[in-house]
Simulated assay, not measured.
Amino acid sequence: MDMKSLGLYDNPDGWRREPLEAFTEFVRSEAYLDHGRRPPATDADSNKRPLRDSTRKNLIHMFGKFIKWIAGEQVGLFAVQPDHILRFLDAQLTGRGKGDIDMVSTIRARHVRLLERVYQHLEVSPNPASQAAHGMYRNREQGAAGVDKDTVALTREQEQAFLLALPGDPGDTSQNWKRRRDRAMLALAIGAGLKVSEIRGLYVENIGSPGGDGSIVINVNPAASDGTSLPHDTVLRQSYVSYLQPWLKERASLDLPGALLFPAGLRKNDKIDQATLYRQIKATFERADLMSVDHQGGRTLRNTFAVRELSLGTAVEQLYDLMGHRDVKTTESFVGLVRKYRPPL
Results as ranks from 00 to 15, higher is better:
S215L: 02
S215T: 09
I216N: 01
V217L: 13
I218Q: 02
N219V: 15
P222G: 05
P222W: 01
A224V: 09
S225C: 05
S225L: 02
G227H: 07
G227M: 02
T228P: 11
S229V: 01
L230D: 13
P231I: 10
D233W: 02
D233K: 12
Q238K: 14
S239D: 15
Y240T: 07
V241F: 05
V241W: 03
S242T: 13
S242C: 10
Q245R: 14
Q245A: 13
Q245E: 15
P246W: 07
W247G: 08
W247A: 03
L248A: 06
L248V: 08
L248G: 09
E250F: 12
E250H: 12
E250C: 03
R251S: 03
L254P: 00
D255E: 15
L256A: 02
P257S: 08
G258Q: 02
A259H: 14
A259Q: 15
L260A: 04
F262R: 06
P263T: 04
P263N: 10
P263H: 03
A264E: 02
A264W: 00
L266H: 07
R267N: 01
D270E: 14
D273P: 04
D273F: 11
A275I: 11
A275Y: 12
T276L: 08
L277M: 15
Y278M: 11
R279V: 11
Q280H: 14
Q280S: 15
I281F: 01
K282Y: 12
K282W: 10
F285G: 07
E286F: 07
E286S: 11
R287I: 04
R287T: 05
D289P: 06
D289W: 01
S292Y: 13
S292V: 10
V293Q: 06
D294Y: 06
D294Q: 14
Q296N: 15
Q296I: 10
Q296A: 14
T300H: 04
L301C: 11
R302F: 00
R302Q: 09
N303E: 04
N303H: 10
T304E: 05
T304Q: 07
F305W: 02
V307Q: 03
V307R: 05
V307W: 00
R308A: 11
R308P: 02
E309K: 12
S311R: 09
